[in-house]
């Protein structure tokens, strides 16, 4: 199955909205960039009908190099977590998304 990239999304925006290809690409970029900025500031990004991106703080822990078995400290860091909305989950499972939450 072909991987969807910026080029593909740009083409769809171009076809649907009637902006130039260049401008479609720029707008896609500004949407992604704005989301990155929010996350970098630790802010949660909620896209209704799609999902929520949030930042989680991870504490320090001891990891191990799986190849050599050498213990290495994993420093505290922040990670992005994505929680898909039930609408997205339903789409992926080929169901018609309804208001009812079965899970």
């Amino acid at each position: 199955m072909q991987t969807v990239t910026r080029a593909f999304l740009t083409e769809i925006i171009y076809a649907q909205v009637g902006l130039s290809r260049n401008e479609s690409a720029d707008l896609l970029e500004s949407v992604l960039e704005r989301m990155c900025q929010c996350l970098a500031e630790g802010e949660t990004v909620k896209i209704s009908g799609f999902g929520t991106f949030s930042i989680r703080q991870k504490g320090r822990r001891i990891g191990r190099n799986p190849k050599t078995g050498v213990e290495v400290p994993i420093l505290p860091r922040r990670v992005t977590v994505f929680r898909p909305s039930h609408v997205l989950r339903a789409h992926i499972n080929g169901e018609t998304p309804s208001g009812a939450d079965e899970a």
Partner: peptide, 12 residues
């Protein structure tokens, strides 16, 4: 429409 298209296409 642009923002909706982006997330709709990712979903599709």
């Amino acid at each position: 429409m642009i923002v909706a298209t982006i997330f709709d296409e990712i979903t599709a």
